[in-house]
C-alpha cells in the first residue's frame, strides 16, 4: 500500500538522520506546513471521497503522524545524548580527580575534640603566654623556691628577663589560672589549651615541648564530686560512653585534695596489656580542689572554693590513635600527618 511504504521510508529517514540539521530538514519534508503528510491531510478535503472513506483515511493518517512524531522525538533525544559512533567510549574505571583538601594537625584535631566537649559542659577556652614569670608559674601556685615539689617542674629559663624578674618558659598551663583569676572575680569556669616546656631529654614518650589543657572552675559550693562528674562526662565524650575513670589520691602543690585520674585501659578494658603496662589503667590527668594558698595569691577571699584539672594533649592523641613516638607530632612527615582525617 502506498501509505505504508511512505511511512516506512519516512521512519527510516528520521532514524537515520546524521545530525540535528538533517533531522530538521526531514521534519520539514514530512511534517512541515507544506510537508508530505500535510499534503495528504489536505487531500481529505477532496469532495469525491465518501464520508466513510474520509474517516478511515483520516484515522490512518493520524496514526502515521503519531508514529513520525514519535520517531522524530526519539531521534532528537538520541542525537543529543546518545553514543556518538565517531568518539571513543569513556573509560569510567579511570581514577577520579581528588580535590586538594588540607588537614588539621593531629594535635589540633585532638585539642579541638577536647575543647568541644568542655565547651558543651560550659567551659569556654582562653589562652595565655608561653613566656612566664616565676610568680605565675610557681609561687602563686604554692610551689615555693627550694621545695622538692619543684622537682617535678624542671623549667627552662630565658637569658633575658621580664622586667627585673627572671623569665621562663611555662612548665604547665596553670599560670593562665593565675592570670585569669587576677582579672576576673568568681564565679566562672574556663579551660586553657597551650604549649608548655620542660627540660626532658627527647625519647619516644618525652619531648621538651608538649601541649596541655587546663581547667578551672570557681564558684561557691563546688565539690570534689562535681570535679569527678565533670571529668567523667568529658571522658565519656572523648573515649565513648563505656569510658571509666578512676581517681587516685596524689599530690600537687596547687590543689588539696589532689587526685590523678586513670582511664580504664581502652585497649584491654582493664585486664592489662602492653599499652597500660599490665596495670589495666592509663594515667591521663591530674586534678583537685584548688589550694587555699592559690586563692590567697590572687587576692580572693578566704573560703573561696573551686576545682582545677590538667591533661596532656599528646598523651591523649597517642592513646587514641596508637601513636608510639611523640616525635612524630613535630617532625611533620606527611606520611604520618596524612593518616589523620
Amino acid at each position: 500500500m502506498e501509505l505504508d511504504s511512505f511511512q516506512e521510508e519516512a521512519l527510516q529517514a528520521l532514524s537515520g538522520a546524521k545530525d540535528s540539521k538533517a533531522l530538521e530538514l526531514l521534519r520539514v519534508k514530512y511534517l512541515g506546513r507544506k510537508g508530505a503528510l500535510t499534503e495528504r491531510f489536505a487531500a481529505l478535503k477532496d469532495p469525491a471521497q465518501s464520508p466513510a472513506e474520509k474517516s478511515r483515511l483520516g484515522q490512518q493518517l493520524n496514526e502515521v503522524k503519531r508514529r513520525l512524531e514519535e520517531a522524530l522525538a526519539e531521534r532528537t533525544v538520541s542525537l543529543q545524548t546518545g553514543p556518538v559512533p565517531s568518539r571513543p567510549k569513556q573509560d569510567l574505571t579511570l581514577p577520579g580527580h581528588v580535590p586538594q583538601a588540607g588537614r588539621l594537625h593531629p594535635l589540633s584535631q585532638t585539642l579541638e575534640r577536647i575543647l568541644e566537649i568542655f565547651q558543651s559542659l560550659g567551659f569556654p577556652a582562653v589562652q595565655g603566654p608561653e613566656v612566664e614569670t616565676e610568680f605565675n608559674n610557681f609561687e602563686a601556685l604554692n610551689i615555693p623556691a627550694e621545695h622538692p615539689s619543684r622537682e617535678n617542674f624542671d623549667t627552662f629559663y630565658l637569658k633575658t628577663a621580664v622586667g627585673t624578674a627572671p623569665a621562663l618558659l611555662r612548665s604547665h598551663t596553670s599560670p593562665v589560672q593565675i592570670r585569669f583569676m587576677k582579672s576576673h572575680p568568681p564565679p566562672f569556669q574556663v579551660v586553657v589549651p597551650g604549649r608548655v616546656y620542660r627540660p626532658d631529654a627527647v625519647d619516644a614518650t618525652h619531648c621538651f615541648q608538649f601541649h596541655q589543657v587546663e581547667g578551672l572552675a570557681v564558684a561557691p559550693g563546688l565539690t570534689f564530686g562535681d570535679l569527678k562528674g565533670v571529668l567523667a562526662s568529658w571522658a565519656q565524650g572523648m573515649f565513648g560512653s563505656s569510658a571509666r575513670l578512676r581517681f587516685r589520691p596524689h599530690h600537687f602543690p596547687f590543689t588539696e585534695p589532689s587526685a590523678e585520674g586513670d582511664l580504664a585501659c581502652i585497649f584491654c578494658s582493664g585486664s592489662g596489656c602492653r599499652v597500660c603496662g599490665r596495670k589495666g589503667w592509663l594515667e591521663i590527668l591530674g586534678c583537685g580542689m584548688v589550694h587555699p594558698q592559690v586563692f590567697k595569691a590572687v587576692g580572693y577571699p578566704a573560703g573561696t572554693v573551686g576545682f582545677a584539672f590538667g591533661m596532656g594533649v599528646e598523651r591523649i592523641a597517642m592513646l587514641l590513635h596508637g601513636v608510639e613516638d611523640i616525635r612524630l607530632f613535630y617532625e611533620n612527615d606527611l606520611r604520618f600527618l596524612r593518616q589523620f582525617p
Partner: peptide, 9 residues
C-alpha cells in the same frame, strides 16, 4: 576517692 559520687554541678 572511688566512693565519692560524681555529680555535675
Amino acid at each position: 576517692y572511688d566512693r565519692c559520687v560524681p555529680s555535675l554541678p
